[in-house]
Design a protein around this nucleic acid. Structure first.
Lengths: 226, 226
DNA sequence: CTCACTCCTTGCACTCACTGCATAACTTGC
DNA sequence: GCAAGTTATGCAGTGAGTGCAAGGAGTGAG
């Protein structure tokens, strides 16, 4: 195994420096430590101090990475949703958004889906934790909207329009309503899944979750006519 | 003006006792005090102590009513959404849900819509406050789902089914996806409105907000086909 | 009216989340 | 290996949020 030091290859996504690696590592350590404490003692069963100790960093460092213990937990949901966004942006541009969403939601590692499901289950019962989860889903909406918005027409966020025609009010509403509905259906699927399967994280159960996700978006595609 | 003391009439909604009136009054006082402080100094510009003093109660009493200053602010959004739910449940049962939603969203006092808009505007920029707003919208989803769920078929929440057939997994997903999408479209409308009109709470601006609300739900009705 | 009862308010004390600042440890480019 | 920039940590301070026990106001029966 030659060249163990600074690895050269992998041209993708820029070479992470040691600093960046360290930061990512401690961030990871803190988040997983928080998750394990949550598993073991439930929220309110541990403090920010405990998380810091378990992760092998000082309390102050903990707060350099996360604004609260809840934020550390919610980072897993964030991460899952970020990978979904990645997948979404990889889809062909001319594909219908709802179809892209169906593909993106299911094109993630089973492991990531599992932690999404688990954190969702563990989240039930703690108000503040739930709020952070909601925030994660909402952030996802915003990111997608900005991405799609800048893709077609002027920048969606306040900023100079580069070339094409900026979105009019109707188009903007359409985009926002569509994306937020997609996210809403995603959450609905997870919710229904949890009601049915509780804390069961088995592959079979996760397969059901996938199915629910697809089928929730499917309802959006075919429309609601009750 | 005879009988100024204990008024007898108004058979609707039970006679509120003096205790209940007092509680409602202090709750109201605290909430409005919080809102005024928010208007004047922005979030982070005041403490729970300040709110309590402004409302003429002790700090401890403040926390008897709200778990945090943010919760006090979010109570306005809660209230607005609760009246929407009321309106929604007043609609004929055989009406399509999406149509009911359009009516319910616009059948509220202009004043309430104004405070919804204002608190939304004031909320921008504070993370914790935003989370509480999200929670309010999400609570609204849950309430509607439970209401509709118990209306058709067995209780949606875990509980004994009274008479009719309980919802199967598909029906449950359908219901959740639909309701959460409606709420999502509501939020989307407010968001787009805010982007266009900023802090403008004039009647004309609010009329536009109403229009956006209806038209967002309209998108759900006609379906998304981009 | 008044006495007992219940619920609400308040002050006190305590834990812990979160932040600014100053200092030590570490990375990086030279 | 040295100077510069970053990150980790310790310290101290503010303020959120809670349990507890004492005082006060609304309630109901006699």
């Amino acid at each position: 195994m030659p060249y163990r030091g600074d690895v050269t290859i992998v041209a993708e996504a820029a070479i992470p420096s040691r600093r960046e690696l360290n930061k990512a590592a401690t961030r990871e350590a803190i988040a997983t430590a928080a998750l394990e404490l949550l598993r073991a003692k439930g929220m309110n069963g541990f403090t920010a101090d405990d998380v810091a100790n378990a992760a092998g960093v000082s309390r102050r460092t903990f707060f350099n990475y996360f604004s609260s213990p809840e934020a550390a937990i919610a980072s897993f949901t964030q991460k899952y949703l970020d990978t979904v966004i990645e997948q979404l942006l990889l889809r062909p541009r001319d594909e219908a958004l709802l179809e892209s969403a169906q593909h993106a939601l299911t094109a993630v590692e089973p492991k990531d889906l599992a932690t999404l499901a688990e954190t969702f289950a563990l989240t039930q019962g703690d108000a503040q934790l739930s709020r952070f989860q909601l925030e994660a889903w909402d952030n996802c909406s915003s990111k997608i909207i900005t991405a799609i918005g800048s893709r077609l027409g002027g920048l969606d966020a306040a900023g100079a329009a580069p070339g094409s025609t900026p979105l009019d009010a109707n188009g903007e509403l359409y985009l926002h309503a569509l994306v937020q509905s997609v996210i809403a259906c995603g959450r609905a699927a997870v919710e229904v899944w949890f009601r049915r399967h509780g804390e069961d994280i088995s592959p079979a159960s996760l397969a059901q979750l996938r199915e629910l996700l697809v089928s929730a978006i499917g309802h959006l595609r075919t429309g609601f006519h009750s």
